[in-house]
Each structure stands twice: as C-alpha cells, then as structure tokens.
Design a protein around this nucleic acid. Structure first.
Length: 723
DNA sequence: GCCCTCTTGTTCGAT
DNA sequence: ACAAGAGGGC
C-alpha cells in the first residue's frame, strides 16, 4: 500500500494506531482518505484481521463509499470489516440478541411517520388534546429523553411537579408500552436498546469489546450522548478508538448532537492524541476565504487555519433577486449558460435551508428543460400511498401489528368506520384477542351489523390467504397481490387526476424497489425487506450514475458531499438563519456552522443569492439580507446583474422536453407486446434485451449494465426501443 | 359511513 | 400553499 500520496498530517493520522486518536479534519481536508488509508494500513501493514475493525458513519452511502475505497486498497479483505451507520450497526447487534432485552428478533423499526401515528393514538387513548400538547412536541420531547438515556421512570420522576411534562411522561410511558406490544422500536430505541442490552448482558458487551480491536467514528461532531456512550463502552477493552470530525460542521444539535463530545474527547479518552488536518484539497482559495470569514464569527471554537494550494479561482457570485421566482430563474439561467459552455448538469447543486424552497426551482427548471433531482424532501417512504402499502406488508408479515392494521383496514374504503372499529376493539378486549383475531371472530360469528361484516369479510378474504402463504410467497408477489386485490390500484386509476397518476407511479416505484432489493440481497423474504428499508437515508438515494441531473437538497442533506458548482440560495434573515434559531445564541452559532458547511461544499464556483420578497405560508414576506452575507469578505464577491439576461432567456428557448418529472407513467403496456430478442429501456436499469417470457406476468431481461433481472410486465417502467 | 366545505395550523433541519 | 381536522348534510 502506497502511503506517499498522504501529506504529513494525514500520514500521522494513518500511522497512529494505538490508543485514542482525534482527527480534527477541516472541510475538504481528506478525512475519508485518512479513514480508508488507516483501515487499509491496519490490515495491510499490521495484519489486523478485518473482522476486528469497526467503522461507524452517518449515512449508508458514506459507509458504502468507504468500503469500496478500502477494497480498492486491500481487496477482498475489506469484506469482513463491520461498516455502517450507528443505526444499522445497532440493528444488527439487536437482531442477534433481541431476546436478551425481551424482543423477538424480527422486531420492526418504526420510522418518523410511524412514530407520529403511534404518539397520536396514544394521545387519543389518554384523552390528551392535540391543542394542549402537539404531536410533534410530544415526539420531540420523548426522542430527546431517549437521546439522553432518560427512561420513562426517570422522566416521570424528574417532572413530577411539571404539569406539561408530567403529561408527556404519561404519553412516553404508553408509547413505549405500545412499541413493546407491537414488537417494535423507533430509531432512538435502536441505540438505547443496545446500551440496555450491554447492561443486561455483560457477556454480550464483552464479546463486542473483544471483537472490535479498532474502532472508527466518522462525523464525530454530530454524535449525541447515547452514541458517545456506545462508542465509549465498545472501546473500553482495547482503547483503540479513532474519531474524525470538525466542530465547525456540527449541524445536528437539534437532534441531540453534542458538540461537547468532540471538544472534550481528550478529557474523556485519556492519553488521546490529536491530529489537525488543515490543508483543503476541495475548494478554491476564494471559497475558503469566504467560509473562514463567516465561521470566525462563532466564538468558543477551536481555531484552525484552513488553507489550500489551489488557485484563488473565480470570485464568489452574488445575486439579489426580486423574489423567489426571480432567484430561481437566475439560477436556471446560470446553469444553462454553464451547459452551453460545455458543463454537465451533474456539476451543479442547489442548496437551501428548508425543503419548501425547492418548489420555485422545480418550476424554473421544468420551464427551462433542466433535468434535476430533489434529494430528500417529502421522502418517498413518507408518502401516503407508500405508507399504506408498507402498512399492508407489515401487517401481512405480522398480523398482530395493530398499528398497521388500523391504518389499512378501511383503505381503500370498505365501509369500516370508527364505529365499527370501536366494536371490534371491544371484542378484542373482552375476548383477549388481537385486533385482527377480533375481526376474524366477528366475521365468523356475525357479531356486528351486516354492513360492517361485509366490509370486514372483504378485507379478511383477501389478506388471509396472503398471511397463510407468506412463507412461500416472495415479498414482491405479496406486494403485487395487495396492490391488485385490495382495490388500491383500481381506486387510483378511477380517480383520473394528476395526483392519482403520481401515486400510481410511486406504487410502481415501490414495486421496483422491492424487486431490486430481492435481486441485490438474494433473498425474497418479505421480512428482510421490511427490516432493512426503514434505515435508508436521503443520501442513499443519490445514485452514482445520476451525473446528468442538477441536484437540489437542503444543506443538511449535503453534509459530506461536494459539487463543482454550488448555489447557496435564500440567504435571508429569518430563513437562513432560520427565525427559530434566532431565539438563542447556540441556535445562531449552529446556523452559522450550517452556512459554513454549505459554502465548503463548493469546489470551483459558488453562487450566493437572496430574494427581497418571498412568499411563505401563502403570503408575501419582505426579508432582509442574511447577516451571513454581511459577514463575508466583500472583496472577493462579485455582484451579479443577471436579471435582464435571465428575463431574455426566459422568453427564448423554452422547449418542454423535460424528462424525469414530466414523464408519462410508463406502466400500462400491452401484456403481450413483449417478445424475446426485443430491445427495451428501463427507467432505472437502462437498456437491455428481453431473454424470455415467464408465464404471463414476468419478463427476463439482460440489461447492458445491470445484469439479468426478472421484472413484472405492466409494473416495470419499461418501453420498447426496437422489435 | 361518506363526502363536501370551511377552518386551522404548519415547516427548520433527519438517522 | 397545502394538508388535516371539524362539522354538517346526505
């Protein structure tokens, strides 16, 4: 392994392998390179067994990338390294040891939406009005408690005399009880329960302490208390812990991240060594100067001096827009100019403070035929139709999952209303049955009104066979049956609205995802899909070959990424910094760090813009320019008068041949249209040749780039290229 | 039980 | 701007 490409500091970080090590890595200073080389070095030079190495990251994408880069250094030996997010690592540990904390190993993971539903149900049960305590508040307080390892008992004890929190304590208690009953955990529980497991079963802790001789943590500045505790415990035996991070990039305080973890590393881990990485390889000098100008306004930070050998580069481009639409047009116009000058769409990223800002850019890009992709935002798995179908899947996988059952029992409408469900619940109570058993009982004994029974029977008749045969059926088969037999597809098709059309597309997309998942993981078991799916993050959605699209995302979502050209938009007071953050100094400091993260994503060219007026909450609001712009060194900023040019371009070429978002739904093909030998195009897999028709429903297709896949006719987004 | 209309709050960020 | 909830008519 060749270490000569490393600079002195990087080399020191890579070769310091015993004891605690803190790598303070400024933006773009090659921290991923340090981590990968360090791991490679351990394996290659010191013959450390890959099995003994643990590396924790914040996104699966970061973990995968690291794994690939280590593999490039040490080949197959990279396979046995344990690499993943905190949450996926904990998930694996818990699946192995669930019984020791009173869970079945096939427990479910509730995502943010499920959590919300559960909190809501619990509040209804406790007769607490949403006007007294908002769901999001209850959820946030509970999550906060968990991240501080405050149990229900401790929480209730703590707030004995606090009316508001006392009631949240009751919600917390019932919330946890329901999770238990449903054999489910939320995201926070994944980590809390591992810590619990280590307490209950010291032998399990010891096993992992001995297994992981070398531990690495990426983005350490964003770890919270329980994550710190986890890392601390795991590293206690060998004490070989290497954390990498940058206090200036800590942007998850609101999620419980404690910047103190990185600040106090040398205190909590005795005899820790520290390496500072200050040379930036990513950005131009001007971009770095701009970033430094902003971040130096934060007090109480560990001062570092980020420098680069790179040229000064372009000046920072500044645009003052009349309103949000004008800002979006300006951005679109700059991109078109860049493309005409030989650039590629994939070089551009639009970074904003809030997801709601994406809309004006979508409009402008659609009009200008600029291909784009929104990362994050209304997340795929949070969409109504996807949640409905996921609830069906979960219910089939686990018929005692009452939360899922409640969601879908009347979706699509079967004439089963609140009244009927109250009766069913009474039956469940008196006869000590699960909700679904109570429904089955009611149907069998005609225990309710004829109309209710008819609806319930219709439901049972189609789900029961799926439940009975779930072990033999693949996940995708079950999903397909649900979509067709529940009437979900028919209902949407009858609606004939663009919204329903989009939902149908999403349903097809879900089907594709499960098929893809089954192929990638070589297992078709439904449970496996359900178990993994909840941990996917936004960044995981960014595919490598999506270089032909402008990316739009929040600055938070851009963490760890880099782009040749960045537009940092909406730089206005009360938007960025956000109005809520201004309530306290810590909040403002975190906004400023967020600004620093945004600026340092740019490699070559950076645009900053703000709008004098912007419609928010449906009303026009006048916003002042962000204080962060005031803090920037104005000498390196070039003011743009692009308005007129932008207007001209708008009147110019505006062909509507936009691909991804304006695309017609591709399903609904004639089932008999396909023949072996035909050349087809798939939305995700690209071009391929049909090899065989399997019965009436599936095609076997050899894709040029993605290998051989079996796809369902009518579902897969396919079109025929040549016959 | 379902559908329509009106009112209300929502949005800062996410594994 | 938009979605979810309340309330009334059917």
């Amino acid at each position: 392994m060749d270490l000569s490409i490393l600079n002195d500091r990087q080399l020191k970080a890579v070769t310091t392998i015993e004891g605690p090590l803190l790598v303070l890595a400024g933006a773009g200073s090659g921290k991923t390179r340090v981590l990968t080389y360090r791991i490679g070095h351990l394996i290659d030079r010191y013959d450390v067994k890959p099995y003994h190495i643990l590396a924790l990251t914040f996104t699966n994408k970061a973990a995968n990338e690291m794994k690939q880069r280590v593999a490039a250094l040490v080949g197959y030996r990279a396979e046995q390294i344990t690499m993943g997010t905190f949450h996926s690592f904990c998930l694996r540990v818990l699946r192995r040891n669930a019984d020791q904390i009173g869970y079945r190993s096939d427990f479910l993971v509730y995502d943010a939406g499920d959590q919300r539903t559960l909190v809501k149900n619990v509040m209804k049960e406790l007769k607490i009005s949403e006007k007294d305590i908002s769901i999001s508040n209850a959820k946030a307080v509970i999550s906060d408690a968990k991240n501080k390892l405050t149990s229900v008992e401790k929480f209730q004890d703590l707030y004995r005399d606090d009316y508001h929190n006392k009631r949240i304590g009751l919600i917390y208690e019932r919330y946890q009880a329901h999770l238990r009953e449903n054999n489910a955990m939320d995201f926070d529980d994944l980590i809390v329960n591992v810590i619990q497991l280590f307490r209950n079963a010291p032998d399990v802790l010891e096993y992992y302490q001995h297994k992981f001789k070398y531990i690495h943590v990426d983005e350490y500045q964003d770890t919270n208390y329980i994550q710190y505790l986890l890392v601390k415990q795991l590293s206690e035996y060998y004490n070989n812990i290497c954390v990498v991070g940058d206090g200036d990039q800590s942007i998850y305080g609101w999620r419980g991240a404690d910047i103190g973890n990185i600040r106090d590393f040398e205190k909590t881990f005795k005899n820790a060594k520290v390496v500072l990485l200050e040379q930036n390889y990513r950005s131009t000098q001007n971009i770095l100067d701009l970033a430094n100008g902003v971040i130096k306004n934060n007090l109480a930070r560990r001062d570092k001096n980020l420098w680069t050998d790179n040229a000064a580069g372009d000046l920072i481009q500044y645009y003052r827009a009349a309103d949000g639409e004008d800002e979006a047009r300006f951005v679109a116009n700059q991109i078109i100019r860049g493309i005409e000058g030989g650039g590629a769409y994939g070089e551009y990223a639009i970074l904003y403070r809030t997801n709601a800002q994406s809309r004006s850019f979508e409009n402008a890009f659609n009009r200008a035929s600029i291909p784009y992709k929104i990362v994050g935002g209304r997340k795929f798995y949070e969409r109504m139709e996807i949640k409905d179908l996921m609830a069906y899947l979960r219910f089939v996988a686990n018929p005692s999952d009452a939360v899922s059952l409640r969601r879908i029992i009347n979706v699509p409408k079967r004439g089963i209303g609140a009244q009927t469900m109250t009766h069913v619940e009474q039956i469940a109570q008196t006869r000590q049955l699960s909700l679904y058993q109570a429904i089955a009982y009611a149907v069998e004994n005609a225990a309710l009104s004829a109309r209710a029974i008819k609806g319930l029977k219709g439901f049972c008749d189609f789900v029961q066979p799926l439940i009975d045969d779930r072990a033999e059926l693949t996940g995708s088969e079950i999903l397909k049956a649900i979509i067709e037999q529940s009437g979900y597809r028919d209902n949407l098709e009858m609606e004939r609205t663009t919204q329903a059309e989009a939902r149908l597309e999403n349903i097809d997309e879900l089907y594709n995802q499960i098929v893809e998942f089954e192929q990638k993981n070589e297992t078709t078991e439904l449970n496996y899909f359900l178990q993994e799916i909840s941990l996917l993050s936004d960044q995981d959605d960014i595919e490598e070959d999506e270089s032909g699209q402008v990316l739009l995302m929040t600055i938070h979502a851009a963490k760890g990424l880099e782009f040749p050209v960045v537009f940092l938009v909406g730089m206005e007071e009360r938007l960025f910094p956000s109005g809520r953050a201004l309530e306290d100094d810590d909040g403002l400091a975190e906004e400023r760090r967020l600004c620093y993260v945004g600026i340092t994503r740019a490699q070559r060219r950076l645009y900053i813009s703000h709008a004098e007026m912007r419609s928010q909450y449906g009303a026009l609001r006048v916003n002042q320019v962000s204080r962060f712009i005031e803090e920037m060194p104005h000498a390196i900023i070039e003011s743009h008068s692009g308005t007129i040019a932008a207007r001209k371009a708008q009147g110019g070429k505006m062909a509507l041949n936009y691909k991804r978002y304006a695309a017609k739904p591709l399903a609904k093909v004639d089932d008999n249209a396909y023949k072996p030998g035909m050349r087809v195009h798939h939305q995700h897999f690209g071009e391929g040749v049909v090899i065989a028709l399997n019965g009436e429903t599936t095609l076997t297709i050899a894709f040029d780039k993605k290998g051989i896949k079996k796809l369902a006719v009518g579902f897969a987004p396919l079109r025929i290229i040549e016959e």
